[in-house]
């Protein structure tokens, strides 16, 4: 189809900066030349992505400054172009991408962890509603099946294991107390982002809960959990009480 070749040339011009094929397909005339007209679309796309990244990572943007942030986002787009039209999910690999940039790591070693926290807060905000854990069905399972139960974390519950205590930095931003000179201590920080009614919050968790959350993420069965040396029944009850576990299935 001729239309397919036209759309491909548009994509090449706007995303890959290869405008030759599209230029030949366009009418000339008017006050703008063909290349100026193509630049409008290149700019539109870039502005949309910068706006999305700024919305996903507002504190990161403030920490590095808008100019530097925009440059990083442009580089990020080249390495990790969007794979979905769902812009709420865009920027998923930004933390890992930043870890690969030496200058960022030298000046702000905590930046990737800050991104992880910001991204988790956004994903938690948009996550589906929790369903009530059906305790009656769970209790009715035969004993041999109960040991094969795999608990499921609610979609808005996102455990984070970070190398820097970025939560304090993030909170300073929320209260308008952010200082550009802030330094972020390098200390192992276990957090769980979870929605409190509608608002996602970062919650500190203790060691037994952290271990249990990790095991749940690894889809371990109840039998495997209970045979683990660091299993804490209190931690399991705590997660159930908080509503962070909202489903289960029986492993085959």
């Amino acid at each position: 189809m001729a239309i397919e070749a036209t759309l491909a040339s548009f994509r090449d011009a706007v995303v890959r900066d290869q405008s030759h094929q599209l230029s030949m397909r366009l009418r000339s005339g008017g006050m703008l030349d063909v290349s100026q007209r193509i630049v409008i679309y290149q700019n539109n796309r870039q502005q949309t992505l910068l706006a999305v990244m700024g919305k996903q990572y507002p504190v990161t943007k403030q920490v590095v400054g808008a100019g530097c942030f925009d440059q990083l986002c442009v580089r990020y787009d080249r390495c990790h172009p969007a794979t979905s039209c769902d812009l709420d999910a865009y920027g998923e690999h930004f933390a890992t991408f930043l870890e690969g940039i030496e200058t960022v790591g030298d000046k702000t070693p905590y930046l990737a962890d800050l991104c992880r926290l910001e991204y988790a807060l956004v994903q938690s905000y948009y996550a589906k509603e929790r369903s009530a854990l059906d305790v009656q069905v769970l209790n009715a399972l035969p004993a041999e099946q109960q040991s094969q139960v795999v608990f499921q974390l609610a979609a808005d519950v996102i455990p984070l294991c970070l190398n820097h205590d970025v939560h304090q930095l993030w909170q300073q931003h929320q209260t308008g107390m952010f200082k550009q000179t802030f330094t972020c201590p390098m200390v192992r920080t276990d957090l769980v982002v979870a929605r409190d009614r509608y608002k996602p919050k970062a919650n500190a968790v203790d060691q037994p809960e952290t271990s249990l959350l990790k095991a749940l993420q690894e889809k371990k069965t109840v039998g495997q959990l209970m045979s683990s040396l660091d299993f804490s029944e209190a931690a399991l009850i705590s997660l159930l009480h908080k509503g962070w576990i909202d489903g289960f299935h029986v492993a085959a």
Partner: peptide
């Protein structure tokens, strides 16, 4: 177009 999202009304 294919896996490239243009984020514009083209």
């Amino acid at each position: 177009y294919e896996n490239d999202y243009l984020f514009d009304l083209c």
